[in-house]
Nucleic acid binder design. Structure first.
Lengths: 167, 167
DNA sequence: ATAAGAATGAGACCTATTCTCATTATATGG
DNA sequence: CCATATAATGAGAATAGGTCTCATTCTTAT
């Protein structure tokens, strides 16, 4: 695969040395909302932490348990929603209306954006340079003021076709 | 409503004086794909041209015909998809996974971005300054090259809460 | 006008997500 | 530790947004 995911790899390495730290952060986030950090939820967090890109529901449930059993659908939906509410995960919509989840930036500390392929629906991470991020931050403040809108997050997605789909 | 939509208004005024021009452009786009520009499709285009923001399916079908009758669901979906394929419309996903459509920028000539409210799901248009757009354009080119990805479109959405939902 | 092909729209169908509820796990106080 | 209360689980039913089918209607070209 030519489209590499450097950020994802960095994150993965980071996490390898600090999975327990991640779990601790998540546990605290959940605790703030009176939620428990159960086996299932830990599993979801680990799956998403190991991924180098936002994952769709089916990718999550299938990869979840051993080779035969899948994660139960209803619990997965429920837990993903709860984890999102507690600020642990972020939900995003790819093309094809496929819903995807990733660890929140608040948790990973790695601000990034998405490359969305309209051909295959693949979504990858990338990051912008410091200057551009700063300029966007300024714009956020201006717009926030001008439109009387409290901006909590900005999304910059580049949409197009990955090298596989371009042919 | 405090959150005004200046772009939408500008567009609307523009269109008032040139609806026929718009229809001509759409007809040509459809023609290129061997599609007809039927009454139904004209209606969809006019609904979206009159809107000051991307519309969800239900908003489209309900506003479509007289006070009693709604636009038929199946035809609406089909036609929206066709209009999108022909480059007349752009489909985007708000929060709540609600799908929304707007006239393509290629058609309106007005490049803009979106303010997405997580409270009520409302989506409004806004535009960035020239300098920032240029910087983003540069980034697109760099990323395109670095990731071997053909970027055809960039999306900059600011997500948060509108003044109504902030309370 | 007529024939050929598109578009239409009602409703069946499909599928992703949510809901329900009986069961199981977890935490806490005695 | 046990008992109890409460939360989480997961199988399957229910729902809803979206797609498909097909008989009918509209277009377009001859």
């Amino acid at each position: 695969m030519q489209v590499r995911d450097l950020i994802g790899e960095r994150l993965r390495e980071n996490l390898k040395s600090s999975l327990s730290e991640l779990h601790e952060l998540v546990a605290r986030s959940l605790g703030d909302y009176g939620q428990r950090y159960t086996t299932n939820r830990r599993l979801l967090v680990e799956i998403l932490a190991a991924a180098t890109k936002p994952l769709g529901i089916s990718e999550i449930t299938v990869s979840g348990l051993g080779s035969d059993r899948n994660l139960p659908v209803s619990s997965t939906y429920r837990n993903l929603a709860i984890l999102e509410e507690c600020g642990v995960l972020r939900k995003l919509a790819g093309p094809n209306e496929q819903v995807r989840y990733e660890l929140s930036e608040e948790l990973t500390g790695i601000h990034h954006h998405h490359l969305v392929c309209y051909g295959c629906g693949r979504v990858d991470d990338f990051s912008l340079g410091y200057k551009l991020e700063k300029a966007i931050g300024d714009a956020v403040r201006a717009i926030s003021h001008e439109y009387n809108f409290q901006v909590t997050e900005h999304r910059v997605d580049f949409v197009g076709r990955c090298i596989v789909c371009v042919g």
